[in-house]
């Protein structure tokens, strides 16, 4: 199936219906394996002790929070440049999911920071830039809800999303550019990971599980949005028929 064929919402929904059961099973299996490895196999850190177990949900949710905005930025280009009919659907539905993962990142990071750093929060570059990401998610969600016409809302949200994408490299490199309590990059870095394999492997498995969860929820939410727009069209048709 070509990408252009997915421009038809009904065809997209049919494909989503076929994919979703497999994705749900893959997500559950990946979480079962990842959490088993994280909670029962991975050793404690020599400095942090068992609190390192928070990393297995904190780091993947941070990645997914950023990936969600990156996906929205690509969809924003799809909306503004290629005018793909499903691009704004993808952009709109990624926002609450990305916001949820960013919220998990912030809360678990705060709970990890208290025993590790001695504080729940500091206004340093990494923590503040992730908080800004969360607030931008809320802003985009509010924008979608403010403008009733989906196509007008899509254009405004696309511009806001592309402007907000500037924050992604700031989040990534904030630990290199500024002094921060947050540790520097230790997985995705030049020269390879600095994490020992017995901890890195469960982290990568939970990262795959979180990514599968994101994809599954995003497909489900896109299917809902297509139905919502169908409902809107039918209501407009009914209103037009009632007032010829």
């Amino acid at each position: 199936m070509r990408l252009s064929e997915l421009a038809n919402p009904s065809r997209f929904n049919a494909l989503a219906e076929r994919l979703l059961p497999w994705l749900v099973v893959a997500t559950v299996l990946a979480f079962a394996l990842g959490l088993y490895q994280a909670l029962f196999v991975a050793p404690d850190d020599y400095q942090q002790g068992a609190t390192v177990k928070i990393m297995f949900i904190h780091v993947p949710s941070a990645w997914l929070g950023m990936l969600g905005w990156a996906l929205m930025a690509v969809a924003a280009l799809g909306t503004l440049v290629w005018r793909h009919p499903l691009a704004d659907v993808a952009m709109k539905t990624a926002a609450p999911i990305g916001a949820a993962f960013t919220l998990i990142c912030l809360v678990t990071g705060s709970l990890w920071g208290r025993p590790t750093w001695g504080t729940y929060w500091v206004w340093d570059a990494r923590l503040t830039s992730v908080l800004i990401l969360f607030l931008m998610y809320l802003g985009v969600i509010a924008l979608w809800r403010t403008v009733e016409d989906p196509s007008r809302a899509a254009r405004a949200a696309a511009i806001l999303t592309l402007v907000g994408a500037v924050n992604l490299p700031i989040i990534k490199f904030s630990v290199d550019w500024w002094n921060t309590l947050h540790q520097p990059a230790s997985v995705l870095r030049l020269g390879g990971s600095t994490i020992y394999p017995t901890i890195l492997t469960p982290l990568l498995i939970t990262a795959i599980a979180f990514t599968l969860l994101f994809v599954t929820l995003h497909l489900m939410a896109m299917r809902n949005e297509i139905l919502r727009r169908r409902v809107r069209t039918l209501r407009l048709m009914r209103a037009a028929a009632a007032n010829p």
């Binding site: 909670l39 029962f40 404690d44 002790g49 068992a50 609190t51 177990k53 928070i54 949900i57 904190h58 949710s61 609450p96 999911i97 949820a100 919220l103 998990i104 809360v107 678990t108 709970l111 990890w112 208290r114 025993p115 969860l213 929820l217």
Partner: peptide, 26 residues
């Protein structure tokens, strides 16, 4: 079932909140 050490409360809270957010989203 696993020894979470002196900071068990923080670890359990982190997992519980993550689970609650995901469950709410689903």
């Amino acid at each position: 079932p696993v020894d979470l050490g002196p900071h068990a409360g923080f670890i359990v809270a982190a997992y519980a909140i993550a689970l609650a957010v995901v469950a709410g989203l689903v």
